[in-house]
Design a protein around this nucleic acid. Sequence first.
DNA 1: CTCTCGATGCGCT
DNA 2: GCGCATCGAGAGA
Length: 195
Amino acid sequence: MDRLPRDFYSQDTMTVARALLGQQLVRDLEGQRVSGRIVEVEAYDGQQDQASHARSGPTERNASMFGPPGHAYVYFIYGVHYCFNVVTEPRGKGAAALVRALEPVVGLDEMRARRGGRDGIALANGPAKLCYALGIDRALDGTDLVEGKALWIERDEAVPDAHVARGPRIGVRGDEWALNVQWRFWIDGNAYVSK
DNA sequence: CTCTCGATGCGCT
DNA sequence: GCGCATCGAGAGA
């Protein structure tokens, strides 16, 4: 399958978030493919978005958010977990889409091993869970998803509008607008969406 | 089933 | 020092 090109990621963040549904996130682990279809995504729209890590401008932690589109932004949270985003829009915007859940496709044994023997929907139905399943950590922050060899996204089956649901983002803080805006997208009825 | 809480690094105020 | 774009274990119903 073909990788999503740079132009895909440079579109506005909501368009990218919506269009990522159904596409396949692929990790190369020492030559072994581990991948899953993206079933849930959230949009974080730059410095004006009070729920975004970009709200206070560029810092050491969020630097890759302000870099060119089509790269990974991986952050460490609660002293325990990693979460994976794709950087969107032109350099300097500070926008990204958080991948929140995957439907495992290839490398199920590897995912089970990395998830401590957990299986089925528990493998990757949350933003930190999918990072454990695919072996994503801060070493992959800033990785190029278009040209890189460790992590990329392939075009898979498109999801029709009729199967896309949307709602407020999960677990965020911020002003009323940030709390209420419907920037979480998921595949309606898909069992692998986070709880 | 639902609810609460501990883990625990580190950027930001 | 505070609080975080989370997860999973444990308690109670």
